[in-house]
Protein backbone atom coordinates (compact mmCIF):
# COMPACT_ATOMS: atom_id res chain seq x y z
CA UNK A 1 0.00 0.00 0.00
CA UNK A 2 1.15 3.54 -0.70
CA UNK A 3 2.47 4.92 2.56
CA UNK A 4 1.95 8.54 1.49
CA UNK A 5 -1.80 8.50 1.19
CA UNK A 6 -2.85 4.89 1.67
CA UNK A 7 -4.33 4.84 -1.83
CA UNK A 8 -3.84 1.12 -2.27
CA UNK A 9 -1.20 1.41 -5.00
CA UNK A 10 1.44 -1.16 -4.12
CA UNK A 11 4.43 0.27 -5.86
CA UNK A 12 6.54 -2.77 -5.19
CA UNK A 13 4.33 -5.29 -6.82
CA UNK A 14 2.31 -3.49 -9.46
CA UNK A 15 3.84 -1.87 -12.51
CA UNK A 16 2.21 0.81 -14.66
CA UNK A 17 1.41 -1.79 -17.26
CA UNK A 18 -0.41 -3.81 -14.62
CA UNK A 19 2.14 -6.61 -14.50
CA UNK A 20 3.75 -7.73 -11.28
CA UNK A 21 7.16 -6.40 -10.44
CA UNK A 22 9.53 -8.41 -8.21
CA UNK A 23 8.93 -7.76 -4.50
CA UNK A 24 11.82 -6.16 -2.71
CA UNK A 25 11.80 -6.36 1.06
CA UNK A 26 14.69 -4.78 2.93
CA UNK A 27 15.48 -5.25 6.58
CA UNK A 28 16.65 -2.28 8.52
CA UNK A 29 18.05 -2.22 12.05
CA UNK A 30 16.83 0.77 14.05
CA UNK A 31 18.44 1.83 17.29
CA UNK A 32 15.72 2.96 19.71
CA UNK A 33 17.26 3.05 23.20
CA UNK A 34 14.07 4.03 24.97
CA UNK A 35 12.74 2.82 28.29
CA UNK A 36 10.18 0.06 27.78
CA UNK A 37 7.65 2.07 29.71
CA UNK A 38 8.20 5.28 27.74
CA UNK A 39 4.46 5.77 27.16
CA UNK A 40 3.69 5.33 30.85
CA UNK A 41 6.58 7.64 31.77
CA UNK A 42 5.31 10.33 29.40
CA UNK A 43 1.86 10.22 31.02
CA UNK A 44 3.50 10.23 34.46
CA UNK A 45 5.44 13.37 33.52
CA UNK A 46 2.16 15.03 32.47
CA UNK A 47 0.57 14.02 35.80
CA UNK A 48 3.56 15.45 37.66
CA UNK A 49 3.35 18.72 35.73
CA UNK A 50 -0.35 18.86 36.59
CA UNK A 51 0.42 18.36 40.31
CA UNK A 52 3.11 21.04 40.15
CA UNK A 53 0.79 23.55 38.46
CA UNK A 54 -1.64 23.15 41.34
CA UNK A 55 1.04 23.22 44.07
CA UNK A 56 0.18 19.66 45.07
CA UNK A 57 2.63 17.25 46.70
CA UNK A 58 1.88 13.71 45.47
CA UNK A 59 2.96 10.76 47.61
CA UNK A 60 2.64 7.14 46.48
CA UNK A 61 2.11 4.56 49.24
CA UNK A 62 3.22 1.01 48.46
CA UNK A 63 3.11 -2.15 50.58
CA UNK A 64 1.76 -5.66 50.69
CA UNK A 65 -2.01 -5.99 51.28
CA UNK A 66 -2.90 -5.41 54.91
CA UNK A 67 0.25 -3.56 55.94
CA UNK A 68 -1.90 -0.65 57.09
CA UNK A 69 -1.84 1.91 54.27
CA UNK A 70 -5.47 2.96 54.70
CA UNK A 71 -5.23 3.01 58.50
CA UNK A 72 -2.12 5.19 58.20
CA UNK A 73 -4.00 7.57 55.90
CA UNK A 74 -6.92 7.78 58.34
CA UNK A 75 -4.53 8.65 61.16
CA UNK A 76 -2.71 11.15 58.90
CA UNK A 77 -5.97 12.90 58.00
CA UNK A 78 -6.81 13.23 61.69
CA UNK A 79 -3.35 14.60 62.48
CA UNK A 80 -2.84 16.92 59.49
CA UNK A 81 -6.36 17.47 58.16
CA UNK A 82 -6.64 20.96 59.67
CA UNK A 83 -3.25 22.01 58.33
CA UNK A 84 -3.21 20.60 54.79
CA UNK A 85 -6.00 19.87 52.36
CA UNK A 86 -5.65 16.13 51.74
CA UNK A 87 -7.09 13.95 48.97
CA UNK A 88 -6.59 10.26 48.24
CA UNK A 89 -6.60 8.09 45.12
CA UNK A 90 -7.26 4.51 46.17
CA UNK A 91 -6.14 1.58 44.05
CA UNK A 92 -7.64 -1.87 44.60
CA UNK A 93 -8.62 -4.80 42.43
CA UNK A 94 -12.22 -4.55 43.62
CA UNK A 95 -14.53 -2.67 46.07
CA UNK A 96 -14.94 0.93 47.21
CA UNK A 97 -14.17 -0.06 50.80
CA UNK A 98 -10.98 1.98 51.20
CA UNK A 99 -12.37 5.11 49.53
CA UNK A 100 -15.42 4.87 51.81
CA UNK A 101 -13.16 4.67 54.85
CA UNK A 102 -11.29 7.81 53.75
CA UNK A 103 -14.47 9.74 52.87
CA UNK A 104 -15.77 9.19 56.40
CA UNK A 105 -13.07 11.64 57.48
CA UNK A 106 -14.45 14.32 55.16
CA UNK A 107 -11.64 13.97 52.63
CA UNK A 108 -12.20 13.43 48.89
CA UNK A 109 -11.24 9.91 47.81
CA UNK A 110 -11.31 8.50 44.29
CA UNK A 111 -11.44 4.75 44.08
CA UNK A 112 -9.72 3.16 41.10
CA UNK A 113 -10.69 -0.47 40.70
CA UNK A 114 -8.09 -2.13 38.54
CA UNK A 115 -9.98 -5.38 37.90
CA UNK A 116 -7.17 -7.88 37.68
CA UNK A 117 -4.32 -5.40 37.26
CA UNK A 118 -1.81 -5.76 40.07
CA UNK A 119 -0.63 -2.14 40.09
CA UNK A 120 -1.69 1.41 39.25
CA UNK A 121 -0.25 3.02 36.15
CA UNK A 122 0.01 6.65 35.06
CA UNK A 123 -3.11 6.43 32.88
CA UNK A 124 -5.27 5.19 35.75
CA UNK A 125 -4.05 8.04 37.94
CA UNK A 126 -4.68 10.50 35.10
CA UNK A 127 -8.28 9.27 34.80
CA UNK A 128 -8.77 9.58 38.55
CA UNK A 129 -7.48 13.17 38.39
CA UNK A 130 -10.43 14.06 36.16
CA UNK A 131 -12.66 13.34 39.15
CA UNK A 132 -10.66 15.45 41.60
CA UNK A 133 -10.40 19.25 42.01
CA UNK A 134 -6.65 19.65 42.38
CA UNK A 135 -7.02 23.36 43.15
CA UNK A 136 -8.58 22.26 46.47
CA UNK A 137 -5.70 19.90 47.34
CA UNK A 138 -2.30 20.41 49.00
CA UNK A 139 -1.32 16.81 49.66
CA UNK A 140 -2.43 13.97 47.41
CA UNK A 141 -1.87 10.39 48.48
CA UNK A 142 -1.97 7.60 45.95
CA UNK A 143 -2.60 4.36 47.78
CA UNK A 144 -1.28 1.77 45.38
CA UNK A 145 -2.59 -1.77 44.99
CA UNK A 146 -1.34 -3.92 47.87
CA UNK A 147 1.56 -5.74 46.24
CA UNK A 148 5.31 -5.74 46.94
CA UNK A 149 6.31 -6.44 43.34
CA UNK A 150 4.55 -4.69 40.48
CA UNK A 151 3.80 -1.14 41.70
CA UNK A 152 7.54 -0.40 41.88
CA UNK A 153 7.91 -0.50 38.10
CA UNK A 154 5.35 2.17 37.21
CA UNK A 155 5.92 5.90 37.63
CA UNK A 156 2.58 7.58 38.35
CA UNK A 157 3.78 11.18 38.43
CA UNK A 158 4.23 11.20 42.20
CA UNK A 159 6.99 13.20 43.89
CA UNK A 160 7.75 10.71 46.63
CA UNK A 161 7.41 6.99 47.29
CA UNK A 162 6.72 5.62 50.76
CA UNK A 163 6.99 1.86 51.27
CA UNK A 164 5.32 0.32 54.34
CA UNK A 165 6.44 -2.85 56.07
CA UNK A 166 4.27 -4.10 58.92
CA UNK A 167 5.77 -5.93 61.89
CA UNK A 168 3.92 -9.25 61.26
CA UNK A 169 5.40 -9.46 57.74
CA UNK A 170 8.91 -10.04 59.02
CA UNK A 171 12.07 -7.93 58.95
CA UNK A 172 13.56 -9.66 55.90
CA UNK A 173 11.03 -8.26 53.40
CA UNK A 174 13.44 -5.59 52.05
CA UNK A 175 15.91 -8.39 51.19
CA UNK A 176 13.16 -10.47 49.58
CA UNK A 177 11.55 -7.62 47.62
CA UNK A 178 14.50 -5.33 46.91
CA UNK A 179 13.02 -3.43 43.97
CA UNK A 180 10.09 -1.90 45.85
CA UNK A 181 12.13 -1.04 48.96
CA UNK A 182 14.88 0.47 46.82
CA UNK A 183 12.22 2.73 45.27
CA UNK A 184 11.28 4.17 48.68
CA UNK A 185 12.09 7.71 49.78
CA UNK A 186 10.86 6.71 53.22
CA UNK A 187 10.28 3.29 54.77
CA UNK A 188 7.64 3.04 57.49
CA UNK A 189 7.66 0.04 59.85
CA UNK A 190 3.97 -0.09 60.72
CA UNK A 191 2.00 -1.90 63.46
CA UNK A 192 4.70 -1.23 66.05
CA UNK A 193 2.05 -2.00 68.70
CA UNK A 194 2.49 -5.67 67.72
CA UNK A 195 6.27 -5.60 68.33
CA UNK A 196 5.98 -6.77 71.97
CA UNK A 197 4.23 -9.98 70.89
CA UNK A 198 6.51 -10.50 67.90
CA UNK A 199 10.05 -10.42 69.29
CA UNK A 200 11.27 -12.15 66.10
CA UNK A 201 10.83 -8.81 64.31
CA UNK A 202 13.79 -6.48 64.66
CA UNK A 203 13.45 -2.91 63.40
CA UNK A 204 17.22 -2.74 63.28
CA UNK A 205 17.46 -5.77 60.98
CA UNK A 206 14.76 -4.27 58.75
CA UNK A 207 16.70 -0.98 58.57
CA UNK A 208 19.93 -2.90 57.82
CA UNK A 209 18.18 -4.74 54.99
CA UNK A 210 17.09 -1.35 53.58
CA UNK A 211 20.70 -0.03 53.88
CA UNK A 212 21.91 -3.13 52.02
CA UNK A 213 19.91 -1.86 49.05
CA UNK A 214 22.19 1.20 48.99
CA UNK A 215 19.20 3.22 50.18
CA UNK A 216 19.64 6.38 52.21
CA UNK A 217 15.88 6.54 52.88
CA UNK A 218 14.95 7.11 56.51
CA UNK A 219 13.30 4.15 58.27
CA UNK A 220 10.66 5.11 60.88
CA UNK A 221 8.53 2.97 63.16
CA UNK A 222 4.88 3.90 63.52
CA UNK A 223 1.71 2.63 65.16
CA UNK A 224 -1.66 4.16 64.38
CA UNK A 225 -3.14 2.33 67.38
CA UNK A 226 -0.88 3.93 69.98
CA UNK A 227 0.08 7.00 67.95
CA UNK A 228 3.78 6.22 68.35
CA UNK A 229 5.87 7.57 65.49
CA UNK A 230 3.02 9.57 63.96
CA UNK A 231 4.73 12.84 64.85
CA UNK A 232 7.86 11.84 62.87
CA UNK A 233 5.74 10.81 59.88
CA UNK A 234 3.81 14.09 59.96
CA UNK A 235 7.08 16.04 60.29
CA UNK A 236 8.42 14.24 57.20
CA UNK A 237 5.23 15.11 55.27
CA UNK A 238 5.37 18.77 56.37
CA UNK A 239 9.04 19.02 55.31
CA UNK A 240 8.24 17.42 51.95
CA UNK A 241 5.31 19.78 51.44
CA UNK A 242 7.51 22.79 52.21
CA UNK A 243 10.19 21.45 49.83
CA UNK A 244 7.52 21.14 47.12
CA UNK A 245 6.53 24.79 47.66
CA UNK A 246 10.19 25.82 47.30
CA UNK A 247 10.50 23.78 44.10
CA UNK A 248 7.38 25.47 42.76
CA UNK A 249 8.94 28.89 43.34
CA UNK A 250 12.11 27.69 41.54
CA UNK A 251 10.08 26.14 38.75
CA UNK A 252 11.66 22.73 39.39
CA UNK A 253 10.18 19.37 40.23
CA UNK A 254 11.33 16.09 41.75
CA UNK A 255 10.85 12.42 41.00
CA UNK A 256 10.99 9.61 43.53
CA UNK A 257 14.41 8.44 44.60
CA UNK A 258 14.85 5.54 42.22
CA UNK A 259 13.69 7.33 39.09
CA UNK A 260 16.83 9.37 38.28
CA UNK A 261 18.68 6.09 37.70
CA UNK A 262 16.43 5.38 34.75
CA UNK A 263 16.85 8.89 33.40
CA UNK A 264 20.62 8.63 33.74
CA UNK A 265 20.66 5.29 31.95
CA UNK A 266 18.73 6.76 29.08
CA UNK A 267 21.24 9.57 28.87
CA UNK A 268 24.10 7.05 28.95
CA UNK A 269 22.42 4.96 26.28
CA UNK A 270 21.91 8.08 24.17
CA UNK A 271 25.59 8.93 24.58
CA UNK A 272 26.60 5.45 23.48
CA UNK A 273 24.62 5.90 20.29
CA UNK A 274 26.62 8.89 19.07
Amino acid sequence: MCTTCGCGVDTDTVRVDGKLAPVRVDTEAVTVLEGLLADNDAQAARNRAHFDQHDVLAVNLMSSPGAGKTALLEATIQALGDELRIAVIEGDLETENDAARIRRHGVPAIQVTTGNACHLDADMVHEALHRLRLSDVDLLFVENVGNLVCPASFDLGQHRNVTLLSVPEGDDKPAKYPVIFRAADLVLLTKQDLAPVMPEFSGERAADAVRSLASTAPVHGVSVKTGDGLADWCAWLRAEYRAQQVRRRDGSTVRPRVQPDGARLHAAAGGARS
Binding site: D12, A21, V25, T27, V30, G262
Partner: peptide, 23 residues
Protein backbone atom coordinates in the same frame (compact mmCIF):
# COMPACT_ATOMS: atom_id res chain seq x y z
CA UNK B 1 18.19 -1.55 36.53
CA UNK B 2 17.80 -1.25 32.75
CA UNK B 3 14.43 -1.73 31.10
CA UNK B 4 15.29 -0.57 27.63
CA UNK B 5 14.24 -1.20 24.06
CA UNK B 6 17.64 -1.19 22.33
CA UNK B 7 17.12 -2.07 18.69
CA UNK B 8 14.49 -3.19 16.24
CA UNK B 9 14.96 -4.97 12.96
CA UNK B 10 12.30 -3.81 10.55
CA UNK B 11 11.11 -5.05 7.20
CA UNK B 12 10.63 -2.18 4.83
CA UNK B 13 9.19 -2.41 1.35
CA UNK B 14 11.03 0.26 -0.61
CA UNK B 15 9.45 2.12 -3.50
CA UNK B 16 11.62 1.05 -6.44
CA UNK B 17 13.34 4.13 -7.87
CA UNK B 18 14.09 2.74 -11.30
CA UNK B 19 10.90 1.00 -12.25
CA UNK B 20 7.90 2.30 -14.11
CA UNK B 21 5.81 1.82 -11.00
CA UNK B 22 8.17 3.95 -8.94
CA UNK B 23 8.15 6.72 -11.53
Amino acid sequence: DELILKTLELETARVPRNTDAGQ
